[in-house]
Amino acid sequence: MEIWEAFLANFHAWRPWAGALLCVLGAVLVVIGTVGVVRFPDFYTRMHAASVTDTSGATSLLLGMGLMSPDLVTVFKLAAIWVFLFLTGPTATHAIANAAHVAGMQPVTGARARGDVGEREGD
């Protein structure tokens, strides 16, 4: 219990450090998502990798910034950005996927996606 109280008393001392560490974690997640987008064989699989960036990468970066922020207005702005991202992100992803589907683009499915025959040349 005393440890917990000391922990809370030093909140403003460790807060920026925790925020910076979360930002680094978020940046790593963003890079991982981008690596997936560059690596994956066709459009539909790339979409999944992009959504890693949009969800966990953005969340931990914004959370880290929130821990570093100097006042409450900044925290509120970060929360607003987060909510907008989580509402518009899946909608935009679905719009792109639906447009590709309506245009007649066929996904590479099954084990074929792993091989070198997977790459579908675009029009």
């Binding site: 994956f40 890693v52 996904p107 590479v108 099954g110």
Partner: peptide, 24 residues
């Protein structure tokens, strides 16, 4: 759910060999 699913996709992104198995 998002955190659990994230972990799976992150592993798929970082594996040396692609083991994805996409399906509709």
């Amino acid at each position: 759910e998002i955190i659990k699913a994230n972990w799976r996709v992150i592993r798929a992104c970082l594996r040396a060999d692609l083991d994805i198995n996409p399906a509709l």
